[in-house]
Design a protein around this nucleic acid. Structure first.
Lengths: 257, 257
DNA sequence: CAGCGGCGTTGCACGTAATGCAACACTCAT
DNA sequence: ATGAGTGTTGCATTACGTGCAACGCCGCTG
């Protein structure tokens, strides 16, 4: 809508790929060097872009700070965190919390497994949306037209033989998940890793987040992991209760309502 | 420099304080509502801003993804290298840079001593993890459970009489190192070689790498080497600053007052 | 050492594209 | 109903961003 800003913002993902010099930025934007320079300068003044000693540009500190603040402003996360920790203490596995936003699913919190074997996932990183258990729950709750639209537009990478192959299979899976109120990922992303997930709902019943427990085969089998489902669901429900404000009294309360 | 972009970017810190509606944004920017609307739309298209269900705006998810991607594509080695060279020019000794990865500590860069006597160490080679100063710094920063798990699993070869004998001693040493923010290896790997090391930290304060200066007894005594500690730490801090995009501006002035 | 090519930077005239205005659409309260 | 509070759209004006060309600055290379 605003050309100048649009161009300026296009620089950010470009720099996220790695440092670039002025010429490269101008090229990729399709603008004159002087234009690119001014845009970069403006970004620099706001600290979103940093100029390293070899004069190349890269993303700057304020961006990290903003991302941090943005995350802290997500109140689901704040409410959920202690529950995630408790769940991790109970079962020992990696616990994730994820939200849906604008066609993407992102991890917004994580408690690492107590076992030395760790999964590769980091907060802020987009989830493998077509296979992850949390993604299924979040997408399954979208209104039908949007759900369909999103499913059509996605790529369906075949991470493993069990990955969701395409839109049709995905929509079927979403229907099942929607019906049963929980989801799994059994080796769909990485052959040896399984997950079970449950939804966190707001006061209006809409799914606002999803949480999962993940563990590799070498630690527990898929069947053993499934026995944790009731616990996962109870935890998710507890978070839902607290989030939607109709919590009886969780633990440390200052004013009894 | 660019008014439009400048205004648009000013919205981000504003939203970082918490969600705001169109009117508030326009007010704070000192522009007409329609102008603010267009700016917000552009930010929205790039995912930097998200419109929540009550129509208010808040910081968007792509911000995480950007910050995340930038972190992953950041090359400590590239940023650190000129600093290592400068340090080597200043003190003449061998300078190392190392990172932790999956239970191992690896040298990823090295500037050779100007003295004829050289250590043998190779870039990409695993470090003597139980004794090397850089290894201590990197392991000391791991979360407690993992640190313990790693320490338990290690072998403790007795390279010299001063080598770390076992897990207990190692964990104690790590606690000290963690506390003081620097580390040494005084003849723990080879009888006649000493090292001092300091950590390189990312924007979040986590240790992403460690650097050390090493020299054999025949060139400088351990005490003499220790006098280099402040310089080593300053260098490491400079790298940290640049790595996290925090340094003001590397102006080409000769002498900073 | 001079000459050269590649880079970032600056000043300026041009015309695109951002701006503010005013009118419109909509939702809630009253 | 009716009003005040939102967010939204179309449009005329001109401010502002744009590209150009010239400059300065290294680091090469002959």
């Amino acid at each position: 809508m605003s050309q100048t800003v649009d161009r300026a913002l296009s620089i950010l993902p470009l720099l996220a790929e790695g440092p670039a010099d002025l010429g490269k930025v101008a090229d990729r934007l399709g603008v004159h060097k002087s234009t690119a320079l001014r845009l970069l300068r403006t970004l620099h003044e706001h600290g979103l872009v940093y100029r390293q000693s070899d004069q190349r540009y890269r993303l700057g500190a304020r961006l990290f700070a903003l991302a941090q603040e943005a995350m802290e402003n997500l109140d689901v996360r704040e409410i959920a965190h202690p529950h995630l920790v408790r769940l991790n203490e109970a079962c020992g596995h990696t616990v994730h919390l994820a939200v849906y936003e604008e066609g993407e699913v992102l991890y917004i919190d994580k408690v690492d497994s107590r076992y030395p074997v760790r999964m590769y996932s980091r907060i802020g990183r987009p989830v493998a949306i077509t296979v992850a258990a949390v993604a299924k729950l979040l997408l399954a709750d979208l209104p039908e037209p949007e759900r369909r639209a999103v499913a059509e537009k996605l790529d369906y990478p075949l991470y493993t033989a069990r990955s969701t192959p395409g839109p049709a299979a995905f929509l079927t899976e979403l229907a099942t998940v929607r019906e049963q109120g929980w989801a799994t990922d059994l080796g769909g992303h990485e052959e040896s890793i399984n997950c079970v997930a449950a939804p966190v709902r707001g006061a209006d019943g809409r799914v606002v987040a999803a949480m999962s427990v993940s563990a590799p085969n070498v630690v527990v089998t898929a069947d053993e992991l499934l026995t944790l489902l009731p616990l996962v669901r109870r935890t998710a429900d507890a978070i839902s209760g607290e989030y939607s404000g109709r919590t009886p009294v969780p633990t440390p309360d200052r004013d009894p309502a």
